[in-house]
């Protein structure tokens, strides 16, 4: 059999018209249209956008975050007012703001509710990102307040840039350390983070005494470089969380 003949034979025999049962065809049409109508009546549930989600997280976590940050700010201000004699004491206080953020981050883990968090419609990474944004906003307010208090104590406008660096660099180091601890040490994340942050408190607090030249005007370059460096680390970590969030993966605190 030649190729063309074989193909013609196949076309003819395979395309033989099957007998259509009109009643089955009508039934199919009717059932499909019924299904189409049912789909139309079922209203689509709109997906929650990120800002909507953020406001939902704010409903649950906003008050604890803002409250704890406010308490930290109050304590730090009292400390600066009573004991501190210069802006070099600012870095030692910054880890406290990050420490105040821990109860919210590790609440699920502490109460054994991590699995419930993991079973929600949003991923753990998205939840973490929303909390970081809320905490970041609160910290921005706190740092502004702290700078205001510090500036009024040590003279308005005098070395404000340096004071800003003294706040930002320790804050960024603590945030990077917290995020790394959360990611790496999932089981002991909460206690590890507390230990690391208290360690940072001691480190930044004693740095002024151990290396006084670091707080002179000529050392501002080191602070700028450190600020840029830790900003990059922090941005990289945030990008990683955002990527995990998009992929719907967990981040950290599951036990």
């Amino acid at each position: 059999m030649r190729d063309r003949e074989l193909k013609t034979f196949l076309r003819r025999s395979l395309r033989q018209e099957a007998c259509v049962d009109p009643s089955r065809l009508e039934e199919t049409v009717w059932r499909c249209i019924k299904s189409l109508r049912e789909q139309k009546t079922q209203e689509e549930e709109l997906r929650l956008g990120f800002w909507g989600y953020l406001s939902e997280v704010f409903r649950f976590d906003g008050i604890p975050i803002l409250g704890l940050q406010a308490v930290s700010l109050l304590l730090v201000c009292l400390f600066l007012w009573s004991f501190a004699d210069g802006p070099e004491n600012l870095p030692g206080c910054m880890p406290l703001f990050v420490l105040a953020f821990l109860p919210v981050v590790f609440r699920g883990q502490y109460y054994g509710m991590s699995e419930m968090e993991a079973a929600t419609r949003t991923s753990g990474a998205q939840m973490m990102l929303a909390r970081l944004i809320l905490a970041g906003g609160a910290d921005l307010l706190c740092i502004t307040g702290l700078l205001g208090v510090s500036a009024s104590l040590h003279g308005l406008g005098k070395g404000l840039g340096r004071m800003l660096l003294y706040c930002v660099v320790p804050y960024l180091t603590c945030m990077v350390a917290l995020l790394r601890m959360t990611r790496w040490n999932k089981r002991g994340g909460i206690w590890g983070s507390i230990a690391v942050l208290l360690g940072f408190c001691v480190f930044w607090g004693s740095l002024a005494k151990a290396v006084p030249w670091l707080y002179e005007t000529s050392a501002a370059g080191i602070w700028v470089v450190a600020a840029v460096l830790f900003s990059l680390f922090f941005a990289r970590e945030i990008c990683y969380i955002a990527k995990m969030g998009k992929e719907g993966k967990l981040y950290g605190t599951i036990v």
Binding site: R15, Q16, E17, A18, V20, L25, T28, V29, C32, I33, L36, R37, K40
Partner: peptide, 20 residues
């Protein structure tokens, strides 16, 4: 968009080939 006539036309167009 919810056009039922189009649905019917599509089914009638492909019912026989799919059945075959």
């Amino acid at each position: 968009c919810g056009n039922e006539k189009a649905a019917e036309e599509l089914i009638r167009r492909y019912y026989l080939p799919v059945l075959r």
